[in-house]
Design a protein around this nucleic acid. Sequence first.
DNA 1: TTGAAAGCGCTAACAA
DNA 2: TTGTTAGCGCTTTCAA
Lengths: 346, 346
Amino acid sequence: MALGAEQGMAGLPTITAVAQVAGVSVATASRALHGGGASAATAERVRLVAEQLGYRPNAVARALQGGTIGQIAMIVPDAANPVYARMTSAVQHELAADDRHLLVAQAQDPADVAAAIGRFGPSTIDGLIVVPLRPEPQVLEALDAARVPTVVIGSLPLTAVHGAVGADSRAGVQLAIDHLVAQGAQRIAFVNGPVDTTPGRMRLEGYRLALDAAGLDFDPALVVAADDFTHAAALPAIDALLERSARSFDAIVAANDLIAFAALRVLSDAGIAVPGDCLVVGMDDTELAQMAIPSLTSVDLGAEARGTLAAQQLLASLRGEADAISHATVVPRLVVRESSTRRDRP
Amino acid sequence: MALGAEQGMAGLPTITAVAQVAGVSVATASRALHGGGASAATAERVRLVAEQLGYRPNAVARALQGGTIGQIAMIVPDAANPVYARMTSAVQHELAADDRHLLVAQAQDPADVAAAIGRFGPSTIDGLIVVPLRPEPQVLEALDAARVPTVVIGSLPLTAVHGAVGADSRAGVQLAIDHLVAQGAQRIAFVNGPVDTTPGRMRLEGYRLALDAAGLDFDPALVVAADDFTHAAALPAIDALLERSARSFDAIVAANDLIAFAALRVLSDAGIAVPGDCLVVGMDDTELAQMAIPSLTSVDLGAEARGTLAAQQLLASLRGEADAISHATVVPRLVVRESSTRRDRP
DNA sequence: TTGAAAGCGCTAACAA
DNA sequence: TTGTTAGCGCTTTCAA
């Protein structure tokens, strides 16, 4: 004894310290602390000592020799965006319940996403959740090169061997349009985000499908795409819509809530009342939606649910559950509020 | 040679593989890859081999033997809250530029915050950023027990040896009130969050100081506190304010934008026009503020700046810069929008 | 059931 | 300038 491995001196107590105090070998201590074969008495004693010393296993050492480090990384386009913030929050909660940590990285452009994936060195993460805006080959390659179980949030070419949790944007837009039609809308405009993104593409598809289903004509003059899924980028797009369509629409579907807010603003400035003269529906059902005046009808695409599901799927796969990795889809839900319900005009 | 450490077989190439291929010892390879003493020729050759093999240093192994792992943890009350989301995003950007990763954890209650701090085992992080809502002794103790450089975002008893970056809530509220007074407001109500939080306490102080400075009386009937800094919690509080004050106020300062939105809603429902009958100012200058209708005047308390500063301070201290750890304060900035400017009534 | 020893990938003495 | 050796904390053979 007294080999210099006294606890508390330089740093936290190690398993060596625990073993010493308990009077067993390091190997036995290790076994006692995990499931492994150790006599009940020994196990009990070691555990007691460990607790008294405040022993915390060193995740780094454990990871080094092949184990897991208890960390999951998540790559989102923009952590400040309310949708991704909620997703991130949900993932973190789920991981915390499993005593794991969450690494958050941000990347938008395919090249950056690929780089971000590659930036996680060997052993540093047990799993990966990626939210790609644009699922280009670059990203898919990087995903394949990742050495850890991966779940993608967002649609993915079906060839991929990774897990995936998607929103059903198409169905979401259809929900919105069916609702607007039921409210009596005839000419429904659509303000999209960039069409080269997965959400942009899917939502446009949903728009066309829903119009078809409702027996309405597709009029290109009623469709615009903002350069980005943001409020700022949407403002000029909606200005353009007003002009191009000669204000002939009676409802607007926005590809997300931020764009819907831009619509509310432009309409308000143009003296078009919502919902009196024009109905508006957003998507994502951000917390903003219920706070707006008029409160915003929005399609909940399940940001939180997607985060939770992705985390659960990843955790299950880490636990070795065979059928853990799958392709799940969250069913959208329409939340009706003031902006789309024609009642009394204020 | 051919000792079984061939590259690419089981896992990524290690420094051993690089050394072998380059025909040098592992130590030399290590030295060549870092600054250390190695002949220019050797260094060059090793670096080339490393690149060809796609060698990535194993951060975990490096951390194990006492180095740094390149990870910073951040603990926020709620990652979904737009303010903390922005802060987190800013921190992440700053860290990424220094090639470090960000771990995000969420905890509100002091006990949970303390636990969250303790959950980071030895060697797993190089530094820590904490955003405590309530700086109770429990949290301070946990902070002191942390073995890594720490920066606190939010005010802290000055005894602490950690870095700190604070908002000047007091000055922020004063900015708001001075502005309202300049707009002609006489009876300014204040809708606060919980007073046992640091922001809650400071903002209330600022309110009283500013009233004093403006020569206005403090009327308890004009002050309410929501149970939480959220929209939902603020609604009943503002209802109570209307009742209690007999609607005798002509302006409202809200402790944050979410509460301000609640005010807009309650006022709207009560038929009180903003800014016509009542001016409203929020705090935090969330992205929501510019999106609202009427757009919301708000005091920018520098969420992003605080995140950036905290990260910079932490990084500097990790670099060993002596005077890195300090107590900084971000100066608030009033952003005037429609909700507080009496012009034409719509 | 337990202990001794090897080794994960890396850096840092210490020698040569 | 380079190589040899030890060791970070842990798990895991392999013997006893």
